[in-house]
Design a protein around this nucleic acid. Structure first.
Length: 586
RNA sequence: GGUCCCGUAGCUCAAGGGAUAGAGCAUCUGCCUUCUAAGCAGAGGGUUGAAGGUUCGAAUCCUUCCGGGACCGCCA
């Protein structure tokens, strides 16, 4: 829980008092009132905008109103100074005696420090990756995969009941093409010369083992069958192999899904979920037969003006209504996707998050429209778009071409720089901004490489905890024991700054989870590492500031407690990002 | 043509509607040989693409425009 939550309560109580005194109307909204650490610490430890928010309804200038609030806050012994500043901010400076309580909390709570209950156990479905099961994962899938996984971690940490889900597009032309490709490999495995893989099929070597397995299992009996007979058999085998490969690739990045939801299962079972979904929409009056205007701009040769089954998605903010059935009578992909999201809702998810690549940004409006329509607005769908990743090698763009077979697989990237570095870099940027990934940069040992910088801080903290015994053999660097140190000995500006940063962690987790923005955690960890390294560096010139200070055992003990708390928060934060916290650099 | 995203220091990027817009790199000026580790400290550097609007307050929200990217289908 937020270590500052109690102070927010004080502010609200003060406002309540003003209402009681008739200074502020009773029905005045307090929603906009915040109490948060200011960007600039010279403004104090916490600042509230209460006076500015209430000024209008109270009919008083903000600063005058602030004058009324100040005395109501000053009585708290943990608050050493209350000031009015700028346009009407009320700045609180916390008593020096407050900070030890924060450290003690970190050390006592250990891995739980920073966990939050704001999720209230609410079920959240995070769907990510969902790459077509027709081949190995390539580097383009990396970002969405890592983003979705870290977001899921973050939400779980904030108290949501998270389900990690992968939508398997195992229905449609591309998996039939996969089956035909595998069938060629099967014939190849039986000794046939198959020559070049035809255009439109998958040429990769990764289907050879699938062909070989089919040959081992079926001998040449599939050869005698019609395509309509062998295709389902080969398709099932190929899909299974592809999914196993994908799961393996994801595991290399530390990613594991709870549910693999088959698109085919929507129509393959006893019931046709897509038909039910369309009937559902029809019952709501959202389905009609109609014509769409031809696409503007780009001339489409195949465009055919025809009457078709349309979903009235424009009622929910989409740009045009969307067709659900193709001219050959089969369902459009979108119809299945709606049925899938309807299924999520039926499974109890009122909060859904889809992580898409930039190439799917066009689907956002229609998907949100569908969810709004089918759930009467009871469910929310947030769609996070991950922009492109551009690969560089020492500043030079890496050229990739699927045709030339020079595209980089996810596995290659992970093998070269390590899962931790890949994950951190993929998260060290807002999801909706493009990202440059340089192989050279992420392995560089410098401040310029945030992965290294944060890892190094954790390793350095670990090292201090290991080494303290050499000076004070009886000093136990275990968290629970350190919590009893005389933490009031920590009075240096740099030490307080570090504690202050550590104190931010819980609220940062909550803010990042609420905004669905895991990247904030990456930046926070970089700042935290910076504070820690900075303090270390000051000990270089000033031995009396060193963590291990030979002439003062109790001060050392307090400082070791600070190091342990720093290490703990670094480890927790890295854990949410899914990055290993290293105890030694190598 | 339309939709979405982006535009912030020389470069790469931060910044829950809050105060004097912050980091790293690069540049400049000093210092330095390690509590095992990346050398450190300081300085300069900005009309937040432009113009309007909303409000106590806008990089952030709205409108229009400019520039860059992604996308547009009865594919999946």
């Amino acid at each position: 829980m937020d270590v500052f939550a109690g102070f927010h309560g004080h502010v609200l109580a003060a406002v309540q008092q003003l209402k009681h005194d008739g200074v502020v109307p009773h029905d005045a909204s307090i929603d906009g009132i915040t109490l948060e650490p200011p960007k600039d610490f010279t403004h104090g430890d916490l600042a509230t905008n209460a006076a500015m928010v209430l000024a209008k309804v109270a009919g008083q200038p903000p600063r005058a109103l602030a004058e009324r609030i100040v005395p109501l806050l000053a009585s708290d012994p943990n608050i050493s100074k209350v000031e009015i500043a700028g346009p009407g901010f009320i700045n609180l400076t916390l008593a020096l005696a407050f900070w030890p309580s924060v450290l003690r909390m970190v050390l006592e709570q250990g891995a739980s420090y920073g966990r939050s209950a704001i999720g209230k156990g609410e079920a959240v479905n995070v769907e990510y990756v969902s790459a077509n099961p027709t081949g190995p994962m390539h580097v383009g899938h990396c970002r969405g995969a890592v983003f979705g996984d870290a977001l899921a971690n973050l939400l779980a940490y904030a108290g949501f009941a998270v389900t990690r889900e992968y939508y398997v597009n195992d229905s449609g032309a591309q998996v039939d093409a996969l089956a035909r490709s595998a069938f060629l490999r099967y014939r190849e495995a039986l000794g046939e010369t198959i020559g070049e893989i035809p255009e439109g099929l998958y040429p990769g070597d990764y289907l050879k083992p699938v062909g070989a397995a089919l040959a081992a299992q079926h001998g040449n009996e599939l050869l005698a069958m019609q395509e309509s007979e062998w295709l389902p058999i080969v398709r099932a085998a190929a899909l299974q192999a592809m999914l196993a490969m994908i799961e393996d690739d994801l595991a290399a990045l530390g990613i594991h899904h709870d549910v693999f939801f088959s698109e085919r299962s929507l129509t393959d079972g006893a019931r046709d979920e897509v038909a039910e979904t369309i009937a559902d929409l029809k019952a709501r009056g959202l389905i009609y037969q109609g014509r769409l205007p031809p696409p503007k701009g780009k001339v489409d040769e195949d465009w055919e003006d025809r009457e078709q089954l349309l979903f009235r998605s424009t009622d929910f903010g989409d740009d045009i209504d969307r067709p659900l059935v193709k001219s050959d009578g089969s369902y459009a992909y979108f119809a299945g996707d709606i049925a899938y999201h309807r299924d999520k809702f039926k499974r109890g998810f009122n909060t859904m998050i889809d992580v898409f690549g930039a190439d799917h940004s066009g689907h956002v409006k229609r998907m949100k429209a569908a969810v709004a329509a089918l759930t009467d607005g009871k469910a929310t769908l947030d769609i996070k778009i991950c922009q492109l990743v551009r690969l560089f090698r020492a500043g030079q763009p890496v050229k990739m071409s699927k045709r030339a077979g020079t595209f980089v697989t996810l596995r290659e990237v992970v093998d070269e720089v390590g899962a931790g570095s890949v994950r951190f870099m993929m998260l060290y940027r807002k999801n909706d901004a493009p990202l440059d990934f340089d192989f050279a940069k992420v392995t560089e040992q410098s401040r310029d490489n945030p992965v290294f910088y944060v890892q190094y801080a954790h390793a350095r903290a670990s090292s201090v905890l290991r080494n303290v015994r050499e000076t004070f053999a009886d000093l136990d660097p275990e968290e629970g024991t350190l919590a009893n140190s005389d933490l009031g000995r920590l009075t240096d500006e740099g030490e307080i700054a570090l504690i202050r940063r550590i104190a931010q962690f819980p609220r940062l987790v909550e803010a990042a989870a609420t905004a669905h923005e895991p990247h904030r955690l990456g930046f926070y960890l970089y700042d935290l590492a910076g504070d820690f390294h900075g303090l270390w560096n000051r000990g270089k010139d000033l031995p009396q500031l060193r963590f291990i200070y030979e002439s003062d055992r109790e001060l050392t003990r307090a400082r070791i407690a600070l190091v342990a708390a720093t290490k703990r928060v670094l480890a927790s934060g890295l854990g949410i990002l899914g990055v290993d916290a290293m105890h030694e650099l190598h």
